[in-house]
């Protein structure tokens, strides 16, 4: 399997996707390179897509009253910004590359179009997003801080 797709297949949202479905998904993945210190997205801006980390490391921050609150570090194989797949609400954190980083970006309207063409794949992705959000809600309900990827 393509090494990029191997990483994507390990992301919880896409865990149910078959190899053929991942190949179809690959056409809508945008590879982006960020330099250390570069902002991937900014808290408050409208979110239009989610990202999967291929190489490097990122940090998620939220604005506090006096200083930034670090939510955590995002490692290769992890995804962030999934909330944007549900709607273009404001981003809940700022994500900055801690080192030179490569990510795969997935854009909501493209995924929606893909889901319309392949409803089974659309269903799997929707269930994947629901699964990730359920995990995060449970963590919050149990008193843990949300994971950095809940941006």
């Amino acid at each position: 399997m393509d090494p990029l797709l191997k990483i994507v297949s390990g992301v919880p949202i896409f865990r149910e996707c078959t190899r053929v479905e991942l190949e179809a998904l690959k056409l809508h993945l945008h590879e982006r390179h960020f330099l250390a210190g570069e902002i991937v997205f900014d808290e408050g801006e409208d979110g239009e897509g989610m990202y999967v980390v291929i190489r490097g490391k990122l940090r998620a921050n939220r604005k506090g009253l006096l200083s930034k609150k670090v939510l955590g570090v995002i490692q290769p194989g992890e995804s962030f910004g999934e909330m944007a797949l549900l709607g273009s609400g404001p981003r809940m954190a700022t994500v900055v590359a801690e080192e030179d980083t490569t990510v795969l970006a997935m854009f909501r309207p493209e995924l929606v179009a893909l889901a319309q063409a392949r409803p089974r794949l659309g269903y799997k992705i929707a269930m994947g997003v629901a699964f990730v959000l359920e995990l995060r809600l449970r963590r919050v309900a149990e008193g843990h801080s949300p994971e950095p990827s809940s941006t």
Partner: peptide, 16 residues
């Protein structure tokens, strides 16, 4: 690919 990172999401949205 030619779109800078900062403008990427917005450009994708507007292209769409």
């Amino acid at each position: 690919r030619a779109v800078p990172n900062a403008f990427f999401e917005k450009t994708l949205l507007l292209f769409d």
